[in-house]
Design a protein around this nucleic acid. Structure first.
Length: 529
RNA sequence: GGCUCCGUAGCCAAGUGGCUAAGGCAGCGGAUGGCAAAUCCGCCAUCGUCGGUUCGACUCCGACCGGAGCCUCCA
């Protein structure tokens, strides 16, 4: 149904609609360079282990990139690392280490977490401390243009010289006459913000035309995005909490210096919300279905996670929940909406996700192929082959792609995938593929799974086999043999209508954490998730 | 106080000025199955409240109630 053609797209790239915070409307992604997208995401300040909230943006923009690349665009994705900052200095002091060492440690933690979630598309991760020269040059340019002024070793941006200051968040300089913070006496206007901060004794510092100091918060993004992506690039993203003052100030800096738009589109993701009163943060892994509904109902006050009492490190969260379930949870909601986070949503997400994995396992039994070994496809390559997957697949794929083209609506895309799984299961049921396996229908099944592989790949889901399958405990071979034996003995009992014994075996195995499933083609076993 | 945004089934969550208001979790009924699990089929909402615009609104406007974010270097 989509035959739209944008002026920009060479080679008839699909048109992608994107909402911009700046224009407050959705519009076609019209890239600076036809066919190529430059996008910049504000990354973390590395002073503590990252928590779930830090993962939202990367997962969303990773999905954005996947869809763009899948659709034929070239993409350069930049995520900065803020490795010089007051909080890092403070934390390193209390830990008795250096800012650089702490930043390095926390950056490693961040990267490891991203890898777990399948965030693999980042092309460049510039660090502020690697770009001090770039930053200083940027500030000098602003000072030379009269947009910034030095004051007592600091340098401030003069918001009164920026006529459209506040356009991103609909604020005017006049309505922001606050007290100006601790450095009010050095600023001309309360709304002015620091580009360069003079070092206090003992603090890490760099030489500059204004004396030893370090960059302000906002300037690194302006300087580094320019250095890597250019004065105007396509997409600038971040959490909604960064819109003001961070992105407003980035715009002020960059556009004052360059006299041209900084980014074509400003994309902001909703914030992770943690249930308030119930404080699920320290929730224990196991609890035998307690009726904690009352407690949950009482806990309405949702607040963003960074404000809740100590968001737990992402690493410990991973000990309890599969990364696939976390990623699915993050993309089950439209990216601009807040995400309700907690043990319960996580468990539901895991439950939902297992429907996919059961189908993968079913396919492996029938077709003898691992879902994860199927080749991924690009949008174009898929077009030719979807017909073989049947009309429902064609229709659901179209729904999926239309949703993704429309401001990356992953919620609808995910829904299409659930529908897809149902149609494939139905196909297997209707043709009794588990017992009969006629070649034509087998090929039809594989064609369907190929489409599923193609689309889950766009969302960055199910890229790797579950750890349990590959991890391979040392005794798996022995356990497998024993289970084979147990199942065979139980099968004999069932054949003899000795259901008491058969059920006893199944129940006792269940208590031991092993699930038996009697299927048309035999009995299978698995470890309880 | 200023600026954004949200309020859809038991819970989570898409969406549209007018065909049957996605999907997930939970629940109910059914098919299959010795039972269980899985799978499939079906059921389960009139869209916070009150007005207005319109031939027609859940979707547009206003008011109100309720909630969230930002205005404090928190993604």
């Amino acid at each position: 149904m989509e035959t739209k053609q944008t002026a920009a797209g060479p080679d008839s790239l699909p048109a992608i609609e994107v909402y911009s915070t700046l224009s407050r409307t959705k519009g076609p992604l019209d890239t600076v360079t036809p066919g190529h997208v430059g996008m910049y995401l504000c990354g973390p300040t590395v002073y503590k282990p990252s928590h779930i909230g830090h993962m939202v943006g990367p997962v969303i923009f990773d999905t954005v990139k996947r869809h763009l690349v899948y659709s034929g665009y070239g993409v350069t994705w930049v995520v900065n690392i803020t490795d010089v900052d007051d909080k890092i200095i403070a934390e390193s002091t209390t830990r008795g280490t250096t800012m650089a060492a702490l930043a390095e440690e926390m950056t490693a933690d961040y990267l490891a977490n991203l890898a777990c979630l399948g965030v693999t598309g980042i092309d460049e991760m510039p660090k502020a401390t690697d770009h001090i020269g770039t930053i200083i040059a940027f500030i000098e340019g602003l000072v030379a243009k009269g947009c910034a002024y030095a004051s007592d070793g600091d340098v401030y941006f003069d918001v009164t010289r920026d006529t459209d200051y506040g356009k991103l968040t609909n604020r005017s300089v006049e309505q922001m006459q606050g007290e100006g913070g601790s450095t009010a006496d050095r600023k001309r206007s309360a709304a002015d913000f620091a580009l360069w901060k003079q070092a206090k004794p003992g603090e890490p510092s760099w030489e500059s035309p204004w004396g030893p100091g370090r960059p302000g918060w906002h300037i690194e993004c302006s300087a580094m995005s320019k250095a890597i992506l250019g004065e105007t690039f396509d997409i600038h993203g971040g959490g909604l909490d960064l819109v003001f003052p961070h992105h407003e100030n980035e715009i002020a800096q960059s556009e004052s210096l360059h006299d041209r738009p900084m980014a074509r589109v400003w994309m902001h993701n909703g914030l992770m919300q943690a249930g308030g009163a119930a404080g699920k943060v320290g929730g224990r892994p196991r609890e035998a279905g307690q009726p904690d509904e009352a407690a949950d109902a009482a806990a309405q006050a949702a607040t963003k996670i960074s404000k809740s009492t100590g968001a737990e490190p992402f690493k410990t969260l991973l000990a309890r929940h599969r990364p696939e379930a976390i990623r699915l949870l993050l993309i089950s909601t439209h990216y601009r909406s807040p995400i309700h986070f907690g043990e319960e949503p996580l468990r539901e997400s895991a439950k939902a996700m297992e429907a996919f994995e059961r189908l993968f396992a079913r396919f492996a039994r029938i077709g003898g192929k691992a879902f994860h070994s199927l080749p991924g496809r690009t949008r174009k390559a898929g077009d030719a082959a979807v017909a073989a997957a049947g009309p429902e697949a064609v229709q659901l794929r179209a729904k999926f792609l239309a949703a993704m083209d429309d401001d990356f609506n992953t919620a609808i895309a995910v829904a299409a995938l659930f529908d897809f799984v149902r149609t494939v299961n139905k196909y297997i049921d209707q043709h009794a593929l588990e017992t009969k396996k006629p070649p034509a229908e087998l090929a039809g099944l594989e064609a369907r799974m190929l489409v599923l592989r193609e689309l889950t790949g766009v969302l960055g889901l199910f890229l790797e086999p579950p750890a349990a399958e590959t991890g391979g405990e040392a005794d798996e071979g022995l356990v497998g043999k024993l289970m084979e034996l147990v199942i065979e003995i139980r099968a004999n009992a069932r054949a003899n209508k000795d259901f008491a014994t058969a059920d006893l075996v199944r129940n006792r195995l269940g208590e031991a954490g092993v699930v038996l499933e009697d299927r048309p083609d035999g009995t299978g076993w698995s470890r309880k998730p």
